[in-house]
């Protein structure tokens, strides 16, 4: 396995990836954040933060389709390991998602006619979005281990929503979803960082093929 092989994999993988769910999620996410902001000036910090979170969940749902591979039955025999194939897919989608997120938050901050838009906690929300994305990928990779037809999204997409629902209701001191004015806001982002690390480790572990 060398860099040249990975480079050769880029173009066919880009063709093989299901981009449509990702595009649908990104478009809807953008609309969910920007349309209410354009329609009213009564949104508070808390409203905008919630909308930005929902936008991040939209694109995480799209990312749950990233590892779908109808050719799974035939890839068992290829010499390129699954981890490398998964990483190529992530390398293709990652920059696009990062660009989308920067664009979404940038537009939200600049087009908002009110003070709340300027105070959007960008760094914290980016950490949350990255965690959601990594969780979606980790769930897809875990689903890959069990699937026979390569349809990982059928498990990963509902699982992303379920995990989000659990995260929404987590009590103190492991709470994740807080308002920006909450005194535990910073502490909760240590929890987010821990969740991100866990999701990344889970993704790497699950992407390894069983010997």
């Amino acid at each position: 396995m060398n860099a040249r092989t990975l480079y050769l994999l880029l173009r066919p993988t880009a063709h093989a990836v299901k981009w449509r769910p990702m595009v649908a999620g990104a478009t809807l996410g953008l609309a969910i954040l920007l349309v209410p902001e354009a329609l009213t000036s009564r949104l508070t910090d808390a409203h905008l933060t919630t909308l930005a979170r929902i936008a991040a969940i939209c694109v995480a749902l799209g990312a749950a389709f990233l590892l779908d591979d109808p050719a799974t039955r035939s890839t068992l025999t290829v010499p390129t390991p699954r981890l490398a194939r998964n990483l190529v897919r992530v390398a293709l989608a990652g920059p696009a998602v990062a660009l989308w997120w920067a664009l979404t938050l940038g537009l939200a901050k600049t087009t908002g006619h009110h003070a709340a838009a300027a105070h959007l906690p960008v760094a914290a929300l980016t950490l949350e979005a990255a965690t959601l994305l990594a969780t979606a990928l980790a769930l897809s990779a875990i689903a890959q281990r069990r699937t026979v037809d390569g349809n990982t999204s059928v498990v990963a997409a509902p699982a992303v929503l379920l995990l989000v629902a659990v995260a929404w209701f987590l009590p103190h001191p492991v709470e994740l979803v807080l308002r920006p004015t909450d005194p535990h806001w910073t502490a909760s982002h240590y929890n987010w960082a821990a969740a991100l690390a866990t999701a990344l480790v889970a993704f790497l572990w699950a992407s390894h093929e069983r010997a």
Partner: peptide
């Protein structure tokens, strides 16, 4: 299969 979860998110955004 992505449309139904996205529709649920639209409902949630509406709640917010």
């Amino acid at each position: 299969a992505v449309v139904a979860p996205l529709a649920l998110l639209v409902v949630l955004a509406g709640l917010a």
